[in-house]
Design a protein around this nucleic acid. Structure first.
Lengths: 200, 200
DNA sequence: ACAGCCATGTAACTTGTTACATGATTTT
DNA sequence: AAAATCATGTAACAAGTTACATGGCTGT
């Protein structure tokens, strides 16, 4: 949803045409996430379908300006006023992967962690280097550095978690997590149940 | 990709039928991310289409067992041996939202941060409470707590970053990030360019 | 003329996700 | 008999992403 919402929020500032939207998105996010141009037009058509934007007439240059509707504007307000709903169903790729691979009797969770750790550390190093190499006080530079900082914080948390997992696994007997496939084949309608956990 | 890959990895342990796969995924990820049953069958059909699994005959109970192919097994190996490719194109919803909203002259980035901070803090509190409320030394409990820990680490990083952003914004004059729409309408083929940043 | 970029658009596809239909079996 | 659960499946959709077609303008 972030691309869609971002484009809509930019349109809330005034009418734009396709390539201009791409440019604006790039400026504001520090050109960190390159956006395929085609996606702009797809997204605009979907926003139009949903009544959030309107297609204006082409200007002399052939630029097709799009403008936000009232519904679209209120959608932007709603977006800005509500927090990003993390966690509820948001799946974390690494957490899933590690949880699953740690419970596979065959797979070596320690190796998975080591591989990931090396990659994450390399990534963090690249981010830090890029961060220090660039000194830029412009609004764009500020936006860029904040996005990079976000990635740095995330990478650090990832490394901390990896170490944490390794420590906890080391405290348990070999492959304490390993789970065989539930072998009992449940008869129709009366299978064995495992305890369910409620979080949210 | 995580659901798809996880189901494939589970199938690498032995043939399973649909509901069994759901159950296995739930056990291994601590029932944190509920998986709609329909998704299992969709995913299985797509895996079959891609030649990674094969559909077996139904057993007397009517259970349709699926088994992994050689190609599927090597895909699992590849998955376990390669790190999760974070960061390259992975968009961070919150980072995008904050970067965009901070550059909107109309929007109040401080308020966005405050709203998010409250939500993230509440979320972290719930996670911590759930974490402490459950004492479970079973393999499932261990898997569950590792997943919850991952969420806790992530939430903490999120809070740190939010504070960091707020601090940095406070050091700058009001709305230092605000970016108006590029007003100059570029003539076809020769628009004004803004400096591009290279990271990766 | 040609290469390169700007600009709009279209078609196809991926993964994730939900809603719904259908039936069997077990519990109450 | 009714409710609940297990089980398989189908159809549709959302958002993201890419590849491609087409044409205009500009600089060499």
């Amino acid at each position: 949803m972030s691309v869609r919402q971002s484009l809509l929020a930019i349109l809330a500032q005034g009418p734009c045409y396709g390539h201009q939207l791409r440019h604006e998105f790039d400026r504001r996010t520090g050109s960190v996430w390159p956006l395929n141009v085609g996606q702009i037009y797809n997204t605009l058509e979907r926003l139009e379908r949903d009544g959030l934007v309107e297609r204006g007439a082409a200007d002399p240059h052939g630029h097709v300006y799009w403008q936000i509707t009232d519904i679209g504007a209120s959608e932007v307000d709603r977006w800005l006023a509500s927090p990003v709903a993390r966690s509820q169903t948001t799946r974390d790729e690494l957490a899933i992967k590690l949880a699953v691979s740690a419970t596979l009797p065959g797979a070596d969770a320690t190796r998975v962690i080591a591989t990931q750790r090396a990659a994450s550390e390399k990534h963090l190093g690249e981010l830090t280097a890029a961060r220090e190499a660039r000194e830029d006080d412009s609004p764009q530079g500020l936006a860029w550095s904040l996005v990079i900082d976000s990635m740095i914080f995330t990478a650090q948390a990832e490394l901390r978690w990896l170490d944490h997992v390794q420590t906890r696994l080391a405290q348990h007997p070999q492959h304490a997590l390993a789970l065989e496939l539930a072998s009992e084949r449940p008869k129709r309608g009366r299978p064995a149940r495992a305890g369910a956990a409620a979080l949210v």
